[in-house]
Design a protein around this nucleic acid. Structure first.
Lengths: 172, 172
DNA sequence: ATTTTTAATCAGGTCCCCCTGAACAAAAAA
DNA sequence: TTTTTTGTTCAGGGGGACCTGATTAAAAAT
């Protein structure tokens, strides 16, 4: 029998963490005048960058299906990224309907910069704590993967492997 | 000397957690047709709800200063919440310039519903793990509070106490 | 009693995520 | 070759988080 009090405690801390982190991020990109860089990596333009950093040179259609977006949304995000010089568009030579999207070097950097660095708030943890945290997060993630796979197996399939691949790349 | 590998490991797991959680949330409010309920609690309308759930009956001005928003943004969010029947607006009787904002019962429920319940992914953790997680998150949060207070002391002041108050209320 | 400050409103704007519908050109199938 | 399917694009829309500027009404200060 798990202890409800302990669960609530942890849940509260987690909410607090999200809240405080959100504020810290806000302050950061407020003072750093990050003009528009407040995209989550997991939405819209960020998603595209992430997918490309795993497999460069996808077509818009590929991106759309992989990311569960409409072709139009995908086009919108890609165009925005082109304007920011983070990706390039070029017509495929083999199939001239297709547009191949590629990361620029700036794009690749942008996709990995925030993710590849160890945040400050982890640096105060001891080795033991880091191990504990990793183990706990692994369990939590598995839990969430389960939720996703039962709720929506097709998303899960598109999702799980690419995520873990991506993370392996970043952190090795 | 903290172990960089361990840090990166934990950092990766954390990113993975955010990513997976984001997807799980998306699936959830996609299947539950939650029309617009995908607000972070820490932004815009969510912020307002949260502030009111701590201190009901604030004026728009009070909300604005407390949340570091302009009066106009605040008004916008409040109006949207009124449309959703989550808050009510009424002219103050003592100072007829002021508008007093109050949570409806639906509003109060909405402000606490997601937060007060223990997420599934915590329920598979053992008591020991829960304790470890709480301890680790406490350290991480302190780290972030520090960041905030050095970067922007005034935000910190508005922030810290009300947060901890809020969390105490939810979880007791 | 008049000026000034304050709380809120309207108007309009920027950027973000995301979708539907309609058009169009290139490739594949009939 | 004609039809159908596929990949993109254009147009337009809904909702969200913010913001600045200008105006109004009520309270406070002079």
């Amino acid at each position: 029998m798990p202890n409800l009090i302990k669960q609530k405690n942890a849940a509260g801390k987690l909410i607090e963490f999200n809240m405080v982190k959100h504020t810290a991020d806000e302050i950061y990109h407020r003072t750093h005048a990050d003009k528009g860089e407040h995209q989550s990596l997991f939405q819209g333009q960020g998603k595209i960058l992430l997918a490309l950093s795993q497999t460069d040179g996808l077509s818009q259609k590929d991106l759309a299906t992989q990311l569960s977006l409409t072709a139009q949304s995908t086009a919108e995000f890609v165009n925005k990224l082109v304007k920011k010089h983070l990706v390039t568009k070029e017509k495929s030579t083999t199939d001239r309907r297709k547009t191949v999207i590629r990361l620029t070097s700036a794009g690749r950097k942008s996709a990995t910069k925030e993710s590849a660095k160890v945040p400050e708030y982890l640096k105060n943890l001891t080795d033991t704590e880091l191990d504990q945290l990793s183990a706990i997060l692994t369990k939590m993630n598995d839990s969430l993967y389960n939720e996703i796979s039962t709720a929506n197996p097709s998303w899960y399939d598109k999702f799980h492997d690419s995520i873990t691949d991506r993370l392996r790349d970043w952190f090795l």
